[in-house]
Structures are given as C-alpha cells and as structure tokens.
Amino acid sequence: MKVVSLAARTRADIDAQVAKVLRGLGNPEPPVDLRFVRELLRLDRDYYSTTDDGVLRATLSRMLVAGRQVLQRPTLLRDAVRSLSLKALYLPDQKRILLDRDLPALKHRWNEAHEIGHDIIPWHAGMFFGDTAVTLTPACHEIMEAEANYAAGQMLFLNSRFPEAALSGPPRLDNIRALGKLFGNSLTSTLWRFVEQAHDGKPMVALVSGHPHPARRKEDFDPLHPCRYCVESPPFRDRFAGVSEAGLFGLVCSYAGAQSGGPLGEGEVLLADQNGDDHVFHFETFFNGHEALTLGVWLHARIRL
C-alpha cells in the first residue's frame, strides 16, 4: 500500500500543533517521553486485550460513537476491535487512549503517539462526532489515519530535530538503526521518517513487507499486493510515479536471501523514470523477524553507451 501524501498546508498545520506540544514540554532532548505528553494534554491511557475484554466492557457505557452511546449496541466496540484487528483506540469524549496489551512494547509507543495525533489535530474531533455517512468512508478514514501518522512521526522524532540528525550520516540502514535508538523508536518508523524527511533531494523509497524469499513467505502472501507499506520521498513520487509496489518487491526478491533474520542482501537495481530513462538505485533489505525493511536510494542516471 502506497502511503497517502498530505498537502503542504496540512503538514504545516500539523507541524504547528506538534510544535506547540513540544514547547509545552520545554523542547526536550530525544527520546520524547509520552508520559509527559499525556500529562500536558490531560489524556488517560489504559490497555485492553482481545482475550480479556474487561476494559472494553467497562468503557462501553461511557463511549460515544458519532454522538450515540455504544450502549445501544453493547458489542460494537468489542466486535470492531476483533474484526478490524485494531491495535489502539482513541476515545475523544473521555480523553482516553486504549492500547492492545498483547502487542510488543515498542509498538505501543507508535500506536500511542498515533492516537495522540488524533487528539491534537483540531479538525479530527469534528470528524469523530460528525456525520457517519461522510466520516466513515474509506477515503476519509485513510486521510485521517495518514494525518495521525504524520503527527505521530513529527512528535516522536521532534519535528526538525530528526532531519538535522539524519542528514549527518549516510542513507543506509545501519545509520537508520542508530537513529532509531537515539530517538527511542522502532526501525520501521525510523525508516519511514528517514525517507519522508531526510532524503536531501534524492529519490528514495522504503518498503515494509513480508519476507521476500519464496521459501519464507507466509500462506496469505498476495503477489499483487506484496507490501504492507510503500513510502516514497517527494522526489521519488514526482519522478518515478509509474513504478509499482509489485515491481519494487520483485527487485528485492532478485537479491534477497532466505536468512531468518538480519541483513538479507543488497544490490544495485534499475528503475525507469516517467520519461523512460533508467536510473541506478542502491537497495538493501533487513528482516527483523516479523517484517522485511527495504531502503532504496538513487545513485545516478544510467550512462548510455
């Protein structure tokens, strides 16, 4: 799935909201402590489990969905969590965030920041309580999630602090891993942020997928939609819009090994731009035991002989 690109005005508005929060925290050094963010915003946090839904049941009588009490349909929240595989919930009427206790702790951090993003984006409050015929359309939901993801990234990576730190090193996965440790975030979220904000004018692309080697693929692998996320830098989006996720994944498969973890390989690959001209990219892939993370960086235009 290619990540939704937000308009410059939207990004600027969200940046301003994040900057307000960071100023309220005294412009902290990385990593940002989300406990202090919650205190500043007067947000509560709790956990639920799909195997023990006591917290969900206790929440039902107070939760509002589009202005209506969920009590009218007591199983709505529980069914939504289970059927949609929700990892976190934001309850705006209660100023409360619920996280899936069964997920790894590092995923809690991103999911919590994502829900905080919904809280600090002013226009999301109206969307949560607005006309369900509009706000629950897939397109609207996708935009809201992209905006909350952007807000989460800006908060966890301290707005402009991350690009400044990222551009001091090479565009390689080793450097991205070190940045993840500095800012206290996962390799996946750091890779995403690196491609979006530390591209330095170069076309870059990141893929988050299952294991690319045929021997390691899961039974539900979909060759038409092989990537969970495809993140493009603005220069890549502008110049290589015709490149498909399946095509990019195929290039990864051309060099990736069958290792169960760690680096899977790297290599130089060719991508054609919108004018049909070939360009050389360096691709490298790392498998963290759950997902394959790939970084592709433009090197130069192919020299025609």
Results as ranks from 00 to 15, higher is better:
residue 105 A to N: 07
residue 107 K to Q: 15
residue 107 K to T: 13
residue 109 R to K: 15
residue 109 R to Y: 00
residue 110 W to V: 03
residue 111 N to F: 08
residue 112 E to R: 07
residue 114 H to Y: 08
residue 114 H to R: 14
residue 115 E to V: 08
residue 121 I to F: 09
residue 121 I to A: 01
residue 123 W to L: 09
residue 123 W to Q: 11
residue 125 A to R: 15
residue 126 G to S: 09
residue 126 G to L: 12
residue 127 M to V: 15
residue 128 F to N: 07
residue 128 F to R: 12
residue 129 F to H: 10
residue 131 D to P: 05
residue 132 T to S: 15
residue 132 T to F: 11
residue 132 T to E: 12
residue 133 A to L: 14
residue 134 V to D: 09
residue 135 T to Y: 15
residue 135 T to V: 13
residue 136 L to P: 00
residue 136 L to H: 12
residue 136 L to V: 10
residue 137 T to A: 11
residue 137 T to E: 13
residue 137 T to V: 09
residue 137 T to N: 03
residue 138 P to L: 11
residue 138 P to F: 11
residue 142 E to C: 03
residue 143 I to W: 05
residue 144 M to E: 10
residue 144 M to K: 10
residue 145 E to F: 08
residue 146 A to I: 07
residue 146 A to Y: 06
residue 146 A to H: 04
residue 146 A to K: 07
residue 150 Y to H: 08
residue 152 A to D: 04
residue 153 G to F: 01
residue 154 Q to E: 11
residue 155 M to H: 03
residue 156 L to Y: 02
residue 157 F to P: 02
residue 162 F to H: 00
residue 163 P to N: 07
residue 164 E to S: 10
residue 165 A to Y: 04
residue 166 A to W: 02
residue 166 A to L: 08
residue 167 L to R: 11
residue 167 L to K: 08
residue 168 S to M: 13
residue 168 S to Y: 06
residue 169 G to D: 06
residue 169 G to Y: 12
residue 171 P to V: 03
residue 172 R to H: 14
residue 175 N to H: 15
residue 176 I to T: 08
residue 177 R to W: 04
residue 177 R to D: 04
residue 179 L to R: 00
residue 180 G to Q: 03
residue 181 K to W: 01
residue 182 L to H: 03
residue 182 L to Y: 03
residue 182 L to S: 05
residue 182 L to C: 06
residue 182 L to I: 07
residue 184 G to K: 04
residue 186 S to E: 14
residue 187 L to Y: 01
residue 187 L to M: 11
residue 187 L to Q: 10
residue 188 T to V: 13
residue 189 S to L: 05
residue 189 S to K: 02
residue 190 T to A: 09
residue 191 L to F: 10
residue 193 R to T: 03
residue 194 F to Q: 01
residue 195 V to R: 04
residue 195 V to G: 00
residue 196 E to Y: 02
residue 196 E to R: 01
residue 197 Q to P: 00
residue 198 A to P: 03
residue 198 A to W: 02
residue 200 D to K: 05
residue 200 D to V: 02
residue 200 D to F: 00
residue 200 D to R: 11
residue 201 G to K: 06
residue 201 G to E: 09
residue 202 K to W: 08
residue 202 K to M: 12
residue 203 P to M: 10
residue 205 V to I: 15
residue 206 A to G: 11
residue 206 A to S: 14
residue 209 S to L: 02
residue 211 H to N: 05
residue 211 H to I: 09
